[in-house]
Design a protein around this nucleic acid. Structure first.
Lengths: 210, 210
DNA sequence: ACTCTATCACTCAAAAAGGGGGATTTTTGA
DNA sequence: TCAAAAATCCCCCTTTTTGAGTGATAGAGT
């Protein structure tokens, strides 16, 4: 542990107290080194190519370019850098947007500050550090509604429809007649009170039936 | 902390060593109480309605009824019980299947055994405990491919297509002509080397372009 | 200058979707 | 065991959509 190269970190955070606080905290540990701490994305982008940090701590609520919009820009410059999002709010859409854009971790600032070191180590090790409230949001997004009005077969078929399959393809694939598929879809539409594929998919996804 | 009712737990695990080990470990803490520890789902199902545990530790690799298939059955009997999956393997499909079926947490057994208590407390508090390797799988499932051959506009349109929308609906919604949508879709098909909506959606999802 | 992107145009045949009326068999729960 | 629910199949019909071919044009970015 002694003579290993420290893990390099860059912080992008507009609140000076938090910024210097994290910098101090991280630098206090010899295994980690804060290369630079920027107060804006604009500022950071002009220096990141030089810094080449292994990990970036990126605030979401920033003036100017938002942290979320910075993600793809940073990824372009430094594709291998692990980006950990920092936030005070845990808005569901923001969480998912950040994750789809390649965030490796997601922490709320209320988090025990010492945890930040663990999180940095974790992303470097290929992990995905998350605050418990973020984990909850992510896991819940997977949960399906257990009270679906659709039968097992109907759900199966609607899933295929949602995958863009035509009725005839579904029929072939499930080894049933096209008429059977049509019949199921008719029943699905009645149960969901819709009159089109589009609305059926929308309704089913909204209620997590599929 | 002294005079609170202990959190009640049921364990379903076929390996006797692990089963008794966890039971002992959990009961050692006065705040938690293992009501019963079953070696099979069949056995558990006949007693769960009586046990009414707040938390269930459910092994995935079980003889007879698998843990995964037990999930919906248990949910029917005890909708409010938090179920934590235990596994030695971290198969991606199994993880997602368990999560969609309502698992509240997911731990690999290699996990530090003391962590099991934290996990139990976390689900009771509404959280979603996960081992780091599971968190990694879950987070990665959100990441989109940053090297999509599709343009922004094409991606937007393909997303609408994947939501079951017809070309004319997409046109109206995006305030562009139907011919423009058709043109985009033609280009999408060429880029993805497909000849149908179904294949385009499949290809795009496989490569995480959408 | 040149390419990429986004926009729009017209034609055409085949496929698919949606809605209407059924019927039969299998499964399942009480 | 018996009725209900689910899954299967069979016609009718019209309208809409899809996919493919073969273009053009204007603007942005390199």
């Amino acid at each position: 542990m002694e003579n290993k190269e420290p893990i390099t970190v860059v912080i992008i955070e507009d609140d000076e107290t938090i910024r210097t606080g994290y910098t101090y905290l991280i630098n206090a540990n010899k295994n980690y080194k804060v290369l630079n701490a920027y107060s804006s994305v604009e500022d950071a982008l002009t220096h990141l190519a030089e810094d080449k940090p292994q990990v970036i701590l990126l605030d979401i609520e920033l003036p100017g370019i938002k942290g979320i919009d910075a993600l793809p820009k940073i990824k372009t410059i430094l594709p291998k850098t692990h980006i950990i999002m920092l936030t005070v709010y845990d808005s569901e859409e923001t969480v998912f947007e950040a994750l789809t854009k390649g965030a490796a971790g997601y922490l709320t600032k209320s988090n025990n500050t010492e945890k930040i070191i663990d999180a940095i180590q974790e992303v470097v090790d290929g992990g995905a550090p998350m605050s418990t409230n973020i984990a909850k949001i992510v896991i819940r997004s997977f949960h399906k509604n257990q009270n679906s009005p659709l039968t097992k077969r109907e759900t199966e078929i609607l899933e295929q429809v949602a995958n863009g399959k035509s009725r005839s393809k579904i029929a072939k694939q499930m080894f049933i007649d096209l008429e059977t598929v049509k019949s199921h879809i008719k029943n699905i539409y009645v149960k969901l009170n819709v009159h089109s594929r589009e609305d059926a998919i929308k309704e089913a996804k909204n209620n997590k039936y599929i």
